[in-house]
Design a protein around this nucleic acid. Structure first.
Length: 396
DNA sequence: TGGGGTTAT
DNA sequence: ATAACCC
């Protein structure tokens, strides 16, 4: 990754801060190799303050594309998904292209705009994890947010460095602070807050806690109001490997079962590759659809089921056909949602593998084998002894 | 509005 | 199973 494409920001996450707004300490020298002594001006000794770096990669997809193809550097570049420019580099922004702009509008604003297709996220995903893994060398406490943001809790590292500096009697330090601008808290909540006359952080700070709790529920109300004072005690939760793998495709119209099956097969094939590389095995599969609706805001429906254990074991082995039985299962889920005897109009299909587990190493005849519900013969009676929310495809 | 992800209910 | 949130 090009260094100038990365903007390191350092955040002073405080538990009991009294600042009116959330303060952010920008480490001018960057997170790594910077001057850790910065902190003794900000953090009283013995305080429970944390040091959390928030790293946000600029126009991430566009950067990946420019690295893949250096000829794109210096040209206005947009990354296209369907008819949208989902992100673009700074050359393009200078010329008026915005994120999530229509391709037509973007071309109109900027006829020289170079577009690359970014519907396949594979390379973005790979780069994204490379960044996360790099950060994990500094601390295991790295939390991902999307593909292009990471939070790193460096409290321990900083404390250790601080001790060193104090013993060296060295403390030449500069601090520059900056304050969070108004944040968007989430679309639905924003609308509800607006209805209450709350449109700024200041409004939220001064609003009645009681009324807010009644309006939004105690959980959301207390959280966002604390956030409005810059108080965020939420831990940096290590993301670790992903909890789900999904692939989706949107389109203008899918109105036949054959069409749907073809699309599902493509999504599934890609997913099987991914899950194979991961090494873990999914125990649940889900099919998600979006039906065409003239105006109603995007709503999705889904059906999921456990993956039969005999199929799970074949995943990743390569020499067995997993596609056929999985397509079978997915088409059953499909017909469970869509009455194929009636006309239908779908605009999105998505397949998701979740409930990922480390592959079983249990061998026949061992204790582990009999203690693994999905392997031992007791699993059938065992499964029926408790309530399953999922549809059982084994029952079909 | 794409093509992903997470957690809460 | 869905909703809401994040990017």
């Amino acid at each position: 990754m090009e260094k100038r494409g990365v903007e390191p920001e350092e955040e002073g996450g405080r538990n009991e801060e009294e600042d009116a707004a959330r303060a952010m300490e920008r480490a001018e020298a960057g997170a790594a190799g910077g001057s850790p002594a910065v902190l003794d001006q900000v953090v009283p000794a013995g305080s429970s303050s944390r040091v959390i770096v928030h790293m946000d990669l600029d126009c991430f997809y566009a950067q990946v594309e420019m690295i893949s193809n250096p000829e794109l550097k210096g040209k206005p570049l947009g990354v296209q998904q369907k008819y949208l420019v989902v992100t673009c580099n700074y050359e393009a922004r200078k010329l008026g292209v915005k994120k999530l702009m229509n391709v037509r509008d973007a071309k109109e604003k900027c006829p020289q705009l170079v577009l690359v297709n970014g519907e396949d996220l594979t390379r973005y995903r790979e780069m994204s994890y490379k960044v996360t893994e790099l950060l994990e060398e500094f601390s295991p406490l790295v939390e991902r947010l999307g593909f292009d943001e990471n939070f790193v809790d460096l409290t321990e590292m900083v404390e250790k460095r601080l001790e060193q500096f104090q013993s060296d009697e060295l403390s030449t330090v500069t601090v520059s602070g900056h304050v969070y601008k108004n944040q968007r808290i989430g679309y639905k909540t924003t609308k509800r807050l607006e209805a209450l006359g709350i449109s700024s952080v200041r409004d939220l700070q001064t609003f009645s806690s009681k009324i807010l709790e009644k309006e939004l529920g105690i959980s959301v109300a207390q959280r966002i109001q604390k956030l409005s004072f810059g108080e965020d005690n939420s831990p940096v939760t290590p993301s670790g490997p992903p909890q789900s793998f999904s692939e989706e495709d949107s389109f203008k119209k899918c109105s036949s079962e054959v069409e749907a099956k073809n699309k599902i097969e493509e999504l599934l094939a890609n997913l099987l590759n991914r899950v194979c590389q991961d090494g873990r095995k999914p125990h649940t599969v889900r099919l998600i659809i979006r039906r065409y609706s003239s105006e109603k805001y995007h709503s999705r429906e889904s059906r999921q089921c456990p993956i039969p254990s005999h199929i799970i074991q074949k995943i990743g082995t390569g020499n067995y056909d997993v596609m056929t039985p999985m397509v079978d299962i997915l088409m059953k889920l499909f017909r469970n949602m869509v009455n194929v005897k009636m006309p239908f109009h779908l605009t999105l299909l998505s397949v998701c593998f979740c409930n990922l587990k480390a592959p079983s190493t249990a061998k026949k005849g061992t204790i582990d084998y009999y203690l693994t519900p999905s392997l031992s013969t007791t699993s059938r009676s065992g499964k029926r002894s408790f309530k399953m929310k999922d549809t059982h495809m084994e029952d079909f």
